[in-house]
Write a protein that binds this DNA or RNA. Structure first.
Lengths: 219, 219
DNA sequence: TGTACATCAGTGAACGCGCGTTCACTGATGTAC
DNA sequence: TGTACATCAGTGAACGCGCGTTCACTGATGTAC
């Protein structure tokens, strides 16, 4: 008696699983169209067809395009946050150069491991007119806060560094600029970029640590 | 005999001038809607009405929305480039700290003197799906080139600074980050921001000047 | 200067297209017995 | 296990709305004589 061959790839899905899969395909299609053709190209028809569904099926999963965008934005934020949280967990909290280098390295890799989501994050981070932009902004604010917290945990004394918040801003700016350069193909050698980034960040810290004025933030 | 009062504000415009004024109003309306409500809100009707015209009048001035956007993008780029060119002309090319400080100061002011255009530039600089984004990208590339040229003119020797291009990238990133902070209201004290920016940029230059690896750009 | 005509920025009306949205229906999946 | 019924993801068809686009027309401006 032969046992029928069960290919794991075509295992039958329950109705529940099939629906979840369709929904995920719609979300992914939304993100991909957003990256490839911009928000103007986002129509329920295109998204549905890109996900292998008919256009009205879009409404089985989402109330309207806004809801889908909202969910897509949440998904993007979650994916990047997840990889960054994972990255932070692996950090040593000592002040050695190698620990610092690893910290920047895992951050870079976190962004680069999610290139599509990172593209969306970078592109729409200043566009408050779309849910994607608002999520991106909130996420980057969180990351900046995390960076400040990490600095404190690593023993960078806030009392001796009145420019800590500004240091965080500049470090974020340089890190994202490096990510942009790599994603755009302008920068290629990750190791050298990482080294330059660490050196620059350390230098900025030094420059702002001995800074007399305090952080120029509005209260 | 009384000379009729001629208010200079309501001087009659020639047909040519009136048309040019309408066109300019349409361009400005396009930019303002872009900043306030995003590209999704850009319709010929809204733009025309915001410019005080009926909707079909849009077509007296532009073939379609794409052409108007193209012109708007060009206008934005031109305005910012203009103020920055003006700013560069006033630069002394010595290496003193005050000259450096003034250089960054005029650059900051150039962006801040055109807040609406700067907002558009910053927001859409990574969106290649729209003409605005492509212009923004090209403009920033030019500015980066100018920065490198200025550094060389100021005697920052390229031979001793293999990371000059990367230095330009990081300096651009920190400058734009400062502009963003001020426009968003997170940073308030221009003088302190400027000081921090100059210190940080000098520090990064130092860090990358003594850098062994050369610029990690792809050829 | 005055007159007759030409030009043309701007408009209201009309139309078509694409998109969003709804709905009755299908057929596969799930469930009760 | 088999049968009868319920559920529901997905669909084709239909419809309305808003936007883009065109066009004949108006009336103010410009020009020739």
């Amino acid at each position: 008696m032969e046992i029928p061959f069960m290919s794991p790839g075509v295992a039958k899905l329950s109705r529940r699983e099939a629906k979840a899969l369709s929904r995920q395909r719609l979300i992914d299609a939304t993100i991909e169209i957003l990256v490839g053709e911009g928000p103007g190209a986002l129509t329920t028809g295109r998204v549905a067809r890109a996900a292998g569904l008919s256009q009205p099926s879009f409404y089985v999963h989402f109330r309207d395009m806004d809801e889908a965008l909202e969910v897509a934005a949440q998904t993007i934020g979650e994916r990047i946050r997840q990889t960054l949280v994972e990255a932070r967990r692996r950090l040593k909290t000592d002040r050695s150069r190698s620990a610092l280098s690893e910290a920047f390295g895992v951050a870079l890799d976190a962004f680069l491991s999610q290139p599509v989501c990172t593209q969306v994050l970078l592109r729409y981070r200043r566009d408050e007119t779309t849910p994607v932009g608002r999520y991106a902004q909130a996420l980057l604010e969180t990351l900046r806060g995390d960076l400040v917290a990490d600095c404190r945990a690593m023993g960078l004394d806030a009392a001796r560094a009145p420019g800590l918040e500004l240091f965080a801003e500049y470090t974020m700016a340089m890190t994202l600029s490096t990510v942009e350069g790599i994603l755009d193909g302008r920068l290629s050698d990750r190791a050298r970029c990482l080294d330059a980034l660490v050196r620059s960040s350390v230098a900025v810290y030094g420059a702002l640590q001995s800074w007399p004025g305090g952080t120029p933030h509005s209260r």
